[in-house]
Design a protein around this nucleic acid. Structure first.
Length: 328
DNA sequence: AAAATCAGCAACCGCAGTGAA
DNA sequence: TTTCACTGCGGTTGCTGATTT
C-alpha cells in the first residue's frame, strides 16, 4: 500500500508564492516558530499550502540571513571542491556556505559552475538582466573571472608536480614499489597510481594544514563506509587502501550518514572524467583534459617544506579531483 | 518581427531516514 | 519490534525572460 500523501493536493495552492503568503508565513514563524510540525503549520498560519511547500519556502527564501546571488570565488572553490569530493550532497555543501541554501547551490551548480567546468558555456551569451537579481551581471562577471583569472591559471600544469597529493592518493606500498618510475602518472577506472621519485611522509599533516574546510585525515572505520558508496557500485578493493586520505572536514556523523546514499556526481562530469585512461609521462594530455583544466590546480613545484608552510586553498580542488576520478 | 532556443530559478515530487507511539 | 507520520534531501519540472536565428 502506498504512503498517504502529506496533504490533500486538491485543496492546496501550488505555484509561486504571493507576497501576502510570504508575509503571513514569515510573520507567523517569527512569532511562534514552526512548532516542530510543518504539516499543521499551514492551517495555523491560514495558508492553503502544503506543509512541505511552507517549509521549502521558509528555508529557501524567507529565513533570515539568506544570501542570494553573488557567489564569490571562494564559494565557487568550496562548491567545486566538495562536489568533487562528496558528489551532490547539496545540504552538506550548503552547510559549509553560511547563508546559502542547498537549492541555491544546486541551481548554481547546474546552471553555472558545471558548464564552466565543462567549458560548455554558450559563447557570446549575455546574462539576463532584471528579473530576480539586479546584481546578476556582477555575479556573472565574478564567475567568469574565477577561472579566467591569470593568477589562478598560473597554477595549472600537467603532469602533476605536487608530491603532496600523489602521496595522499596513492597507497604507500604502490608508491614504494614504483619509486623507480620517475614522474610517471597514470590512472584508470579502477585504479589510481601515482609514481614519483620522492615521497613526502608528512603529507597527512600537511593536508590538515591546508584545508580551508578543516578537511583532515580520518580513521578508516568512518571512511570505509563512506567512499565505497561514492564509487557507486564499483567493487574496488584497491580503493579501500585510500581510506586514510579521505577528507573529513565534515563531521563523522555526516560521513556515516552517507553510507546509505547512492550519491552520484553529475553524469556528464563523470563520463568525461572516466571515459579515458591516461598515462602521462609528458605534458601531452589526452583529449578532454582541457575541459577540466579548471579543476587541475597544481602549484609550481612545491617541496614538502613549502607545502607545510603555505598552501593554496586550490589544493583542495586538486585532491578532490582525484577522489572524483575514482568514481564510476 | 516572430519563432525557437536557451538560461535561471522557484517550486514540486518522491524516496529514505528518523523517532514516537 | 513494528508501524507510521513527519522531515529532509536530491532530482526534476515548469515558468519567465533573454538571446539567437
Amino acid at each position: 500500500m502506498g504512503r498517504a500523501p502529506c496533504c490533500d493536493k486538491a485543496n492546496v495552492k501550488r505555484g509561486p508564492w504571493s507576497p501576502e503568503e510570504d508575509a503571513k508565513l514569515k510573520s507567523y514563524i517569527q512569532q511562534h516558530g514552526t512548532g516542530g510540525n510543518w504539516i499543521t503549520l499551514p492551517q495555523k498560519v491560514g495558508l492553503k499550502r502544503c506543509g512541505k511547500s511552507c517549509r521549502l519556502r521558509w528555508l529557501n527564501y524567507l529565513r533570515p540571513n539568506i544570501k542570494h546571488g553573488e557567489f564569490t570565488e571562494e564559494e565557487d572553490n568550496i562548491i567545486c571542491s566538495l562536489y568533487l569530493s562528496i558528489g551532490s550532497r547539496w545540504s552538506i555543501i550548503a552547510a559549509q556556505l553560511p547563508g546559502r541554501t542547498d537549492n541555491d547551490i544546486k541551481n548554481y551548480w547546474n546552471t553555472k559552475l558545471k558548464k564552466k567546468l565543462l567549458g560548455k558555456q554558450r559563447k557570446d551569451h549575455r546574462p539576463r538582466t532584471g528579473y530576480h537579481h539586479n546584481n546578476k551581471l556582477e555575479m556573472m562577471k565574478e564567475n567568469e573571472n574565477f577561472f579566467a583569472n591569470p593568477d589562478i591559471n598560473a597554477y595549472y600544469s600537467w603532469p602533476p608536480q605536487s608530491l603532496l597529493f600523489s602521496t595522499l592518493i596513492a597507497p604507500q606500498s604502490d608508491l614504494a614499489e614504483s619509486s623507480a618510475n620517475t614522474h610517471n602518472f597514470q590512472y584508470s577506472l579502477d585504479q589510481v597510481y601515482f609514481c614519483q621519485d620522492q615521497l613526502c611522509q608528512s603529507s597527512t599533516n600537511q593536508l590538515a594544514s591546508i584545508n580551508p574546510l578543516n578537511i583532515n585525515t580520518c580513521d578508516s572505520s568512518v571512511t570505509s563506509s563512506y567512499y565505497p558508496s561514492i564509487i557507486n557500485g564499483v567493487s574496488n578493493n584497491s580503493f579501500q587502501e585510500y581510506n586514510n586520505y579521505v577528507p573529513v572536514g565534515l563531521s563523522d556523523n555526516v560521513l556515516n550518514s552517507t553510507s546509505s546514499h547512492s550519491q552520484q556526481m553529475d553524469k556528464s562530469v563523470l563520463e568525461m572524467v572516466n571515459s579515458r585512461t591516461i598515462s602521462t609521462t609528458s605534458p601531452d594530455i589526452s583529449t578532454g583534459w582541457e575541459e577540466l583544466s579548471p579543476l587541475i590546480v597544481y602549484p609550481p613545484s612545491v617541496s614538502c617544506s613549502e607545502t607545510q608552510q603555505e598552501i593554496s586553498p586550490y589544493y583542495v580542488l586538486e585532491e578532490s579531483r582525484y577522489l572524483g576520478l575514482l568514481k564510476q
